[in-house]
């Protein structure tokens, strides 16, 4: 931060090597290799059921790889005993596909719980912080609602607010845009960009929203169901225009692949 000119290549945040993920005998994806660098907005994309959520669960240590390693910086996450991963986990903020808010707590209590646990803030400061996080996702005034009293889309947004509670270094979002109205979805894109710019967070997002992928992502991985491994990695706009893998081009063009389109787009 103090010396902006030096170090043009940002450090690698997450390195995944030869990752194979299975449920019993069922291989979800094999031999995934990719890197996520600091301040990346990294998108995991692919058809539904291809294993995006499963990959996310591996990255945050909720599932153990069948084969392969995951490194955070230089530290081997997979080799660390699950009970000794607190150091890693404290740097994460996670939003689950369903929101996964704690249903017996109000929205405010949901966001306040990690703050009470890990910060030394006064109750008043925590309350202020909670209102701030809720207004970032457009939910100010909903502090005292229970998760069951708000809609699915609102649950997701509250889940994002909770994931941001501790200003995490790395934010993992599982389909944050699915089920949101166009305006909320747009606001979410803006929010993710500003989080990256103001806090320097790295963001890993599972999403299929093409508009949002092209608007915010600078790097991505495409999981291919046909081959059960990665179809491509790289900047999504470049993948759309130049990827050698037809499945990737089709996906990023909503199935409208033609040579004509290729020449027009570039």
């Amino acid at each position: 931060m103090s010396d902006p000119q030096a170090n043009p290549a940002p450090p690698t945040k997450i390195t995944v090597r030869d990752l194979t993920m299975t449920y019993g005998a069922f291989v979800v994806m094999r031999d995934l290799n990719f890197e996520i660098v600091e301040k990346d907005i990294f998108v995991i994309m692919g058809p539904s059921g291809c294993g995006k959520s499963t990959l996310l669960r591996h990255l945050i240590g909720l599932q153990e790889p069948t084969k392969g390693t995951i490194l955070y910086g230089d530290e081997d996450f997979t080799a660390t005993d699950p009970s000794e991963r607190t150091g890693f986990i404290r740097r994460f903020g996670v939003m689950y596909q369903t929101g996964a808010l704690w249903s017996s707590l109000t929205l405010a209590e949901n966001i306040a719980l990690p703050l009470e646990e890990y910060s030394k803030l006064t109750p008043k400061a925590i309350r202020d912080l909670v209102s701030y996080k809720l207004s970032l996702v457009g939910l100010s005034g909903y502090e005292d609602y229970y998760p069951a009293q708000i809609s699915g889309g609102m649950n997701k947004r509250a889940g994002i607010a909770r994931a941001m509670a501790l200003d995490p270094e790395i934010l993992f979002l599982d389909e944050p845009g699915a089920g949101l109205d166009p305006l909320s979805s747009r606001r979410l894109d803006d929010l993710i960009l500003s989080l990256r710019d103001s806090l320097g967070s790295t963001v890993v997002i599972v999403t299929h929203e093409l508009a949002s992928i092209f608007a915010i992502a600078n790097n991505s991985i495409f999981l291919d169901t046909a081959t059960r491994t990665q179809g491509a990695t790289g900047n999504p706009v470049e993948l759309r225009d130049h990827s050698e893998n037809p499945a990737v081009r089709l996906f990023l063009r909503r199935g409208e692949d033609s040579e004509l389109a290729t020449s027009n787009l570039s």
Binding site: I60, L62, I89, T98
Partner: peptide
């Protein structure tokens, strides 16, 4: 509802 996973990823 993945609430227990959410506890884990907050280090609880």
């Amino acid at each position: 509802n993945q609430e227990i996973d959410a506890l884990r990823t907050f280090g609880f």
